[in-house]
Write a protein that binds this DNA or RNA. Structure first.
Lengths: 222, 222, 222, 222
DNA sequence: TATGAATGAGATTTCATTCAT
DNA sequence: TATGAATGAAATCTCATTCAT
């Protein structure tokens, strides 16, 4: 009988399938739930109990696999960066003409943040934590800076083709793109309160996406 | 907390000024300390005990003046927006030629965030909280959107003088400026871990400041 | 209403007087209860809950005053050494003739361990912990080594009076006394199981007390 | 415990001998590891996980062979008493002249405790447990009281030869020897903290060994 | 016989807040 | 107005043990 049911008092029927004995699935499940919780409430705001509750497992398993709350948080962070990398490499910008490639990068970055708001929030959380945890993750640095190589390639091709002006720095360009796209998610709530604009509103977001691309384009064209 | 005293020994004694019975000073003192704590650790990460500890008063006073932890946090937030407003109005951009005015605004925004990193972090914290608290502060909205009027004024004058191209939207322009300047502080730590660039390093910040201005300028000029 | 009653389900009526607001009494109360628990079960075997239960306060206060379980244990240990010192100095052996003084010391040491078995057990516990906690208590060493001065004084006077032979070392003598007296408490249970002798039985203890004194006496007399 | 593997990396791999299906070896291996753990940390301080970790087997085997933690502890205890018995009988004191025999016994006891400190600690642990487990081990009592017969034999021979005085009780004599030798190991750490003497230091131990023999000798000679 | 995943029960610790003085 | 003691409720974490394969 691999199916056990919880005798939870709150719910009508025990709806949890336990005892999966598929560690990878168990871990992935935990990480997914935890990602949402950490993104929603931050490291200190997140509740281990709340995470466990929404998991197919028990709280004990979080500790079994991730050691402690911070270990789980770190696993969540790592999994985010891994997903981002896959998404970025899946873009394959090297075969596009420079301007197209740049546009695709801008739009991808914008859309990715908008669609995965939880994940952008995770980055904010980590910055509130002063990057204490990313700093411990050696695999993150090399992986992510490949995006700089991509940008550099686009810039060089564009420069050679006289589409882009000279002297644009890849790190600065990428920072500009990231800043413009990230902000839409990161500062959504304070902007809404202050300026009565909801940057997550589809129409508003679509308009902003255009403006951002326009801004980036003007910053590089010859 | 008697226990803390176990590992003290560093301080002579009586380093806390005897309470002067000046409510305003007491409150200001509490808010300053709380600002640092909330900016450092977020709303849920901050500790009431820790704040009280670094205050010239006792914990009881926090509750006396601010009701509870959230009340204190809200007071901190409000005080931030008030300071920002004073600083912005002190700029007086309406008497400057449009391009100069815009440049001053960009540089002020950049410098302000860089210098008052704690305050930018506070904004991040509030966004993690989904703006739950700013939303409750009626005084914030009217106050802060005056900045939009300022930007609008600059844009209109620039357009009229043919320095700026037509159709630039003030909200979008301000968002771009804010995004570019805010990001330098908000994503400092993750960027450092991933790209090995310290965006807070004076030389790097100065260079970035130039690029940001260049980007903004190109986005508006005729 | 300084008296609050617990709504404990296990007991007929809430019998705990809380809210004493006499920190010293509260702390002493906690330490007394904790001494018994730690002596009975060791550091890891002791239960914070169990200690709190038998206290006039709540579990929270243990943490308030002592930080954590180890802090409490350390306080217990320190309090033991302080009590031992008072008892030893109260003896005032310097005005007794050497042989009498030595006998008094032996009998005191024997009786003290027998009467305060809990405390001898505490010393065992600390040795199981490899002295990790005593080592951190700077006040213990100087305090307790005054006993060596006392023994030394007795030995010198006895030697001068030709009651004691030459060359008896004070540290060795004290160690012998301590060993013989301590053992009666420390190894009581294993000895009982193996040899069917209960070293804590009054008659047996009284006899053993004589033998110990005899052994010590023979080891020093001229 | 998957989590532990986060900070491993030190070991090549496959450092655990593949299980040889030799129950006796497996059991012996477990007992050895468990002896160290229990001696180090006590019954409640020891961790089943930690023991299993350092074993050539898995945690399941501990339960398979020993039932539960206490069963394992009891097995460890029994194995200690068996080893002690073998060592003692190997001495063969009945063919030595009384004084020599006594000296050999003292020195053996001293050396045995010094060399097998883990085992003396185990006895302390069991006394902290109030002998709950030895009491359950029927084989221990008859076995170990043979040592009393040995001491008795020595005493009687010594008395007959007028080397020893009359009226020395064998149980008391053995207790004295045990106390003096045991103490060197059992109270090593507190004595070090309090008196700055390391009773385990070879030179200090050698000197103490002499003093103990001297003390015992003086307590019995005619 | 062997293993790694899984777990319930309970242990320790933390935290915002209130109370007595 | 001020303070240190006190607290309930809830959070994090640990541990011996069992289960599925």
């Amino acid at each position: 009988m691999p199916v056990k049911q919880r005798s939870s008092g709150k719910r009508g029927r025990g709806e949890k399938t336990v005892q999966v004995r598929d560690p990878e699935r168990t871990k992935a499940n935990i990480i997914n739930v935890a990602t949402a919780e950490f993104a929603e409430l931050g490291l200190s705001g997140a509740r281990v109990d709340a995470i466990a509750e929404r998991t197919h497992t028990s709280k004990r398993m979080l500790y079994y696999y991730f050691g402690d709350k911070e270990g789980l948080y770190q696993a969540v962070l790592l999994s985010y960066y891994e997903k981002l990398r896959s998404a970025e490499t899946a873009l394959d910008l090297s075969h596009q003409p420079p301007l197209t490639a740049l546009k695709m990068l801008v739009e991808f970055t914008f859309d990715y943040h908008l669609r995965h708001a939880a994940i952008a929030r995770l980055v904010m959380v980590e910055n509130i934590n002063k990057g204490r945890h990313v700093a411990k993750m050696p695999s993150v640095a090399p992986v992510n800076s490949t995006i700089l190589a991509t940008v550099d390639d686009i810039l060089q091709r564009g420069e050679k083709e006289k589409v882009f002006r000279k002297g644009v720095d890849s790190f600065n360009l990428y920072t500009t793109i990231a800043a413009l796209c990230f902000f839409n998610v990161s500062n959504r709530y304070t902007f809404k309160a202050i300026f009565r604009h909801d940057m997550a509103d589809p129409a508003e977001a679509a308009a902003r996406r255009e403006v951002i691309w326009d801004t980036v384009r003007r910053s590089v064209i010859a």
